[in-house]
């Protein structure tokens, strides 16, 4: 306590996924003020656009064993984090299914070879029958696949809304549309006991090592499609996943392009994503396109997250395509010394 009876003051700069988790972790013990450069109704930021998959085993193909293992820990942390919210948010751990069309079977084999062993969690080879049992809608469409039972997902839009509502009720102060300057241990010249810098790509102005990696996603309403869990389709250029969300909504993503360009999705990417989804399930043909989005994932050169502490400023950034996968663990690591 900085003064008798008063809670210490924390400023959270950047109210995306990291800022929200930090605020939820700190809300009981700190007096929190949030600064967010976008307007409250803006549909921007990696955490807002993401498919919010929790896929440590599948991602182990492209990330280190340490990160994949952290992803596994984070899955166990999510239910506790969601329990802090005043509203229910959809969360499931029903595994994920990886499928490939005949001509991409080579990619599936190489994907399987690259899966790293995670404590007690193994991929299961899925034949035609198993695919039909797991996802009846895909019965007969695919003959080979992989089932990764430990994986999960959550509803990020639900999380974004519920986290704001909960924090607002707990007295968190919000400053939207506010490009706050973090300097000399202050935010806009105001002193705080702690400052959490969770600006994502927005921190690039102060950190030249940070880069944006463009990603594009589609959100589709498709009442004719019924999937029980995220389905990942092998694709020659990037894995395309279809993550089923509540109310017959599906997030289909995501491209991965080394570019800082966050302008609208291109026609090519739209065609690739939607045609891939259509080849998985023809019920997408009659689906409605709710939104087509493009955004930037914040990443460092090794694509690993970084926690940087300087005096009373803690910067958490570079979660790349692993925001939901890693955020609970990374935020806890960042806050455990001093704040928690």
């Amino acid at each position: 306590m900085s003064e008798l009876g008063k809670k210490p003051r924390v400023a959270i700069v950047g109210f995306g996924l990291i800022g929200r988790i930090a605020a939820l972790e700190l809300m009981d013990r700190y007096d929190i003020t949030v600064f967010e450069k976008d307007r409250q109704d803006a549909q921007t930021g990696a955490g807002m656009l993401a498919a919010a998959m929790l896929a440590p085993l599948a991602e182990s193909v492209i990330c280190s064993q340490v990160l994949a293992q952290q992803g596994l820990e984070a899955i166990a942390m999510w239910p506790k984090l969601l329990a802090k919210l005043d509203a229910d948010v959809f969360f499931q751990q029903a595994g994920s299914l990886i499928v490939a069309h005949q001509q991409d079977r080579g990619d599936l084999r190489s994907f399987e070879q690259r899966l790293k062993p995670l404590d007690g969690h193994h991929p299961l080879s899925a034949d035609r029958r198993m695919i039909a049992e797991l996802e009846p809608d895909l019965s007969g469409r695919f003959t080979h696949g992989l089932y990764l039972p430990c994986e999960g997902q959550l509803d990020n839009l639900g999380f974004f809304k519920a986290s704001y509502d909960t924090l607002k009720r707990r007295g968190v102060q919000f400053n939207y549309g506010c490009e706050a300057v973090v300097a000399n241990g202050c935010v806009d010249n105001q002193a705080y006991d702690w400052i959490i810098d969770s600006r994502g790509v927005g921190a690039k102005v102060d950190n030249a090592q940070l880069r944006g990696v463009r990603g594009e996603v589609a959100r589709i309403y498709a009442p004719e499609v019924s999937l029980q869990r995220p389905v990942r389709l092998m694709h020659p250029r990037y894995p395309i996943y279809i993550a089923p969300k509540p109310n017959h909504q599906f997030v289909i993503g995501a491209t991965e392009i080394e570019s800082q360009d966050d302008a609208d999705i291109t026609v090519r990417s739209t065609l690739e994503l939607l045609s891939a989804a259509y080849t998985v399930h023809c019920g997408f043909a009659e689906g409605r396109v709710l939104s087509l989005n493009a955004g930037l994932r914040p990443a460092f050169v090794d694509n690993h997250p970084r926690i940087e502490k300087k005096d009373n400023v803690i910067a958490i950034n570079g979660l790349y395509r692993h925001g939901y996968l890693l955020a609970p663990v990374v935020v806890q690591q960042a806050l455990c010394e001093g704040l928690l």
Partner: peptide, 16 residues
């Protein structure tokens, strides 16, 4: 050089 990578947009990767 992808079209999407306008000169400024691809600058970070280009630097690498």
């Amino acid at each position: 050089l992808r079209r999407q990578n306008s000169v400024a947009a691809g600058e970070d990767f280009w630097q690498l």
